[in-house]
Design a protein around this nucleic acid. Sequence first.
DNA 1: TCATTGACTGATTGACCAATCAGTAGTATG
DNA 2: CATACTACTGATTGGTCAATCAGTCAATGA
Lengths: 188, 188
Amino acid sequence: MLERGLASTRVADIAKATNVSGGLIHYHFATKDDLITEMLRSTSDSEIQRLKEIVAGPGTAVQLLDRVLRFYIPASRSDQSWILWVDAWAVGVREEHVRTILLELEDAWIEILSQVISAGVASGEFTCDDPLGSAERIDGMLDGLVVRYTLHTGNLSRSRMLHHARVAAAREVGLRLSDFPDEPAEAP
Amino acid sequence: MLERGLASTRVADIAKATNVSGGLIHYHFATKDDLITEMLRSTSDSEIQRLKEIVAGPGTAVQLLDRVLRFYIPASRSDQSWILWVDAWAVGVREEHVRTILLELEDAWIEILSQVISAGVASGEFTCDDPLGSAERIDGMLDGLVVRYTLHTGNLSRSRMLHHARVAAAREVGLRLSDFPDEPAEAP
DNA sequence: TCATTGACTGATTGACCAATCAGTAGTATG
DNA sequence: CATACTACTGATTGGTCAATCAGTCAATGA
């Protein structure tokens, strides 16, 4: 699916990749659309779960925020998971069941970002009078940057993306860039 | 194309919509891919030109910045031009000639945003030590928010999007939200 | 031991659609 | 007037692919 794209992956391709017959695919999934929907749902669910585990873990608010930002950003060039979501956006424009999954995923991200910020405000680490708004802006920025990163290999490095994420997040919660954990962020 | 999507629009659909025969489409465009590419190129070019006209116009740096932000954001629900680009992103992942067009368009946006910010710094209106970085962040955020706006009707209002854009831009160039022109931005 | 069921195969079918092609009509050129 | 050229039509073709279907095989259980 990552190789060929949601639309132009044939049922026969999936059959080949999984070493089963085309018939078996249709034995388990009534239509190709069903298969795609279930795949997206399952991917989204495990992403949300991983995310929840991160924020449930130990650490200060800055550490948690940084971990969330890092989880957002693709681990490397070879981490192609985002290709799936860019594909899904295009499908989601027309198909409501896909759109629903996307909405849930995005809402989860925003809600969790918002929670992390609120917790930091409560503990006195952060200053922010609109955690939800900040979460929406950070989420939006990361979505946009990831598209750029995914599409235009070499035009935006991972470390520069992380730098951007930290600069923006720092501004949103009233920190300085240097307040973030030590991993070096490439200079602008 | 906006109705059915880049991938599932048939040549016959275009023929019907333009009141010509299918044959004529192939008389002018060797393949469907050619047609799509030329369409994207042409749309991108006129978008870039409009953008250049805006920044070449009169006004203070804040006014120009605000005009650029407003041009970015879809005019209304019925302004579906962004659907095209979300579609194109998905295609661009696999097809280089589409990717090239997308890269050019995005670079143009970033360059112009960066120029407007630099001009504002030069005139003393703005404070910003990394105009290019700021432009990348603002561009990214708008891309991401627009996807959300385009996909999830009703989940994010246009005025809230404009609010987000202004808050983020204000922070990037050292202004307060109230420094932007008067059109009311919805409360958070 | 025989019937039933669930997992699975691979060939087939039928719909769909980009691209082709033979042919028509109108216009310009010498 | 004849030739040539451009714009155009609509029927046809050939390839692609989701979905179906008849049938195999192994495990379960009465």
